[in-house]
């Protein structure tokens, strides 16, 4: 029941999903969007690949264990929070580098952490459920 058209479509759709997710993530601080939504959108892109082309394809495209991805996200968020604490502020206080074009900040790093952790957590759940059929037989 695997359709090559659907599989190809999903593979083409995935970059679109990811690009849109990144856009939503980066604009999140000033317009609707943010790490949670972006993470869910990206996870949805992978979910479509799983449906259309099977979990192995999705895994190959992800290249990294979703649990590690989530862990990296958590570490990002922790660095963002701890960095503020180490530089004399309260934990998780935002620090802004006032660059004219690129508004870099620990807050952005934190939101990226949210993004990665949500992708990692959700994909770990989906992969686990998807794999569960095989083990039981």
């Amino acid at each position: 029941m695997r359709s090559p058209i659907l599989a190809t479509g999903a593979r083409l759709l995935l970059p679109l999903f990811l690009g849109f997710a990144l856009y939503i993530l980066l604009r999140g601080h000033n317009a609707p969007g943010g790490g949670f939504i972006a993470g869910l959108i990206a996870a949805l892109g992978f979910a479509i690949v799983i449906f259309a082309d099977g979990p192995e394809a999705a895994r190959r495209m992800l290249r990294i264990d979703p649990r590690s991805l989530g862990g990296i996200g958590l570490v990002c968020a922790l660095i963002a929070g701890g960095g503020a604490a180490l530089s004399g502020g309260a934990p998780f206080q935002g620090i802004w580098l006032d660059l004219p074009v690129l508004p870099l900040s620990t807050v952005l790093l934190f939101d990226i952490g949210v993004f990665l952790a949500v992708i990692g957590g959700v994909l770990a759940l989906i992969f686990a459920l998807e794999d569960s059929g095989k083990a039981g037989g």
């Binding site: 601080h29 943010g34 790490g35 949670f36 979703p66 649990r67 989530g70 862990g71 996200g73 958590l74 968020a77 922790l78 963002a80 929070g81 934990p91 998780f92 206080q93 935002g94 807050v107 934190f110 939101d111 952490g113 949210v114 952790a117 949500v118 990692g120 957590g121 959700v122 994909l123 770990a124 759940l125 686990a128």
Partner: peptide, 21 residues
């Protein structure tokens, strides 16, 4: 989410990730 209550959000991320794991 990412500034005023970031510490809570951090806790919630941990929960989501733990659910997955």
């Amino acid at each position: 989410l990412v500034d005023f209550r970031a510490f809570d959000t951090f806790g919630e991320l941990t929960v989501v990730l733990l659910a997955g794991i």
